[in-house]
Computed example of a mutant assay.
Amino acid sequence: MFEFRFGVDDLATTWFAYSPLQEAVLSLRARSGTTTYPEQQPWIARWQPAYRTLDTTLLEALVTPRRWVPDFLTPRPPGPHPDFAAELAVLAATDLRTVRADVLAAYAGDGSPPPPVLRTLLDDPATLLARVVDVLHAYWTRCLAPAWWPRARSVLEADIAHRGRILSEHGAEALFADLDHRLSWRGGVLRLHDPDPTVQALGTTIEVAGRGMVLMPTLFALGAQTDITQGGPPLLTYPARGKATMAENLSAVPVPASPLANLIGAPRARLLTLLTAPASTTELAHRLGVTPGAVNRHLTALTAAGLLTRTRHGRSVLYTRTPLGTSLTTAG
Rank of each mutant, 00 (worst) to 15 (best):
G111N: 04
P77S: 07
A304V: 06
F16Y: 14
L272Q: 05
L274C: 15
Q230N: 13
G314T: 01
P115K: 04
T245M: 00
A261R: 07
S316A: 12
P77F: 06
G79H: 11
A209D: 15
Y37H: 11
P197M: 00
P259Y: 00
T326W: 11
L271N: 08
L73F: 13
A221R: 00
G171D: 07
V99G: 00
H170R: 14
P323E: 02
E248T: 08
G232D: 05
A269M: 02
V117L: 01
L11Q: 14
C143I: 11
R241W: 01
A130Y: 02
V132F: 05
P292M: 01
G171E: 07
L308I: 03
E283T: 13
V25G: 07
R268D: 10
D10V: 09
P239K: 00
T291D: 15
A294T: 09
V133Q: 03
A12W: 12
T64S: 11
A30V: 09
T320W: 01
I44R: 06
L28A: 14
A50V: 08
E248Q: 10
R119T: 09
Y319F: 07
V63K: 07
T64Q: 04
P233T: 06
T329G: 09
S327R: 08
A93G: 04
L183P: 04
V133F: 07
S327P: 05
V90P: 06
V214Q: 06
A17D: 12
T276D: 15
P217Q: 05
A261F: 10
P292K: 02
T35Q: 12
D134R: 14
A12Q: 15
E157T: 09
S19E: 03
H137V: 12
F72P: 09
W68Q: 15
L59I: 09
I264M: 09
G289F: 07
I206C: 12
P234H: 06
L288Y: 03
A30Q: 05
S19R: 02
G109N: 04
A30H: 05
S154G: 15
T57S: 13
D71Q: 11
L235A: 07
G306L: 11
Q230A: 12
L58F: 11
P65A: 08
G33M: 15
A174W: 05
V25K: 09
G223T: 01
T36W: 04
W148K: 04
P82M: 02
L144T: 00
L274F: 13
G314W: 02
R182G: 15
L299D: 04
G289Q: 10
T329S: 05
T226P: 11
P234K: 02
D124A: 07
P82Y: 06
E60N: 13
C143S: 13
Q41A: 03
P77Q: 08
L122K: 01
G188T: 05
E87L: 10
D55M: 02
T127I: 13
T36R: 03
R165D: 12
L156A: 05
